[in-house]
């Protein structure tokens, strides 16, 4: 936003205000045409920043389980190893919107396809103004799964959320791609050599009796 220069006269300022009012009116009219909705696509991470608040960007996932709508937020949006971070969780009933008030237990495990997943308990929390806050510090970068567990109406609720600490390795997919392509090309080359050798042998077999007959 640019400041009004000192040489600006009163008349110019009122003209400027008039334009500003018109612009604001237009902005509000357009905002009314483009309705904004305060929710996320279910189960998808969304990154948000509100310029009116001094909170850092957060990563947010909204989903549902059984009778509850669960919102999970991670601060900061991109946590790193050795940095303090926090998970916020809200759970409200789908039928009447009432917030869950019992205990929630948070655990964490490695998000691996194979090998030891090594689960640890982060803590058990009670709500603070309907929000469950769980702090964390990770020693190493990687993919983790945070599990929130609670019990409501005699039913156990277990819900997993992904958490990425640090940047994912970019070299991995490139390495896999190059590796697979090299394997394919090597395999095809080997097969072609075999084919060629077979053709040579067949050719030699056909040639020899013909030469013998000619002699």
């Amino acid at each position: 936003m640019s400041a009004i220069p000192a040489s600006c006269t009163m008349g110019q300022m009122s003209d400027g205000r008039g334009i500003m009012n018109k612009v604001l009116l237009l902005v509000f009219a357009l905002m009314a045409l483009v309705p904004a909705q305060a929710h996320h696509v279910l189960g998808r991470p969304a990154y948000s920043l509100n310029e009116d608040s001094n909170t850092p960007p957060s990563m947010q996932v909204e989903t549902q389980i059984g009778q509850y709508d669960v919102t999970y937020m991670v601060f900061p949006a991109f946590p790193r190893a050795g940095e303090r971070g926090r998970v916020n969780l809200y759970a409200t009933r789908l039928d009447n919107g009432q917030a869950f008030a019992g205990e929630v237990r948070f655990t964490v495990r490695d998000d691996k396809w194979f090998g030891d997943k090594h689960e640890e308990t982060l803590g058990t929390q009670l709500p603070d103004d309907h929000v469950y806050r769980q702090g964390f510090v990770f020693k190493e970068d990687g993919d983790y799964i945070i599990t929130a567990e609670f019990e409501a109406d005699g039913e156990p609720y277990i819900i997993d959320f992904p958490l990425r600490i640090g940047q994912p390795a970019g070299v991995g997919p490139i390495g896999v791609t190059v590796g697979v392509i090299v394997l394919i090309l090597l395999g095809v080359n080997l097969l072609k050599r075999k084919q060629l050798a077979r053709v040579k042998v067949r050719y030699a077999r056909d040639e020899l009796p013909q030469k013998a007959r000619e002699q």
């Binding site: 279910l42 189960g43 998808r44 989903t63 549902q64 389980i65 059984g66 789908l94 819900i159 997993d160």
Partner: peptide, 13 residues
């Protein structure tokens, strides 16, 4: 959401 409630789906639905 309604379908997820019927079939007991959670997470990314």
């Amino acid at each position: 959401r309604k379908l997820a409630q019927v079939i007991g789906d959670s997470g990314q639905l």
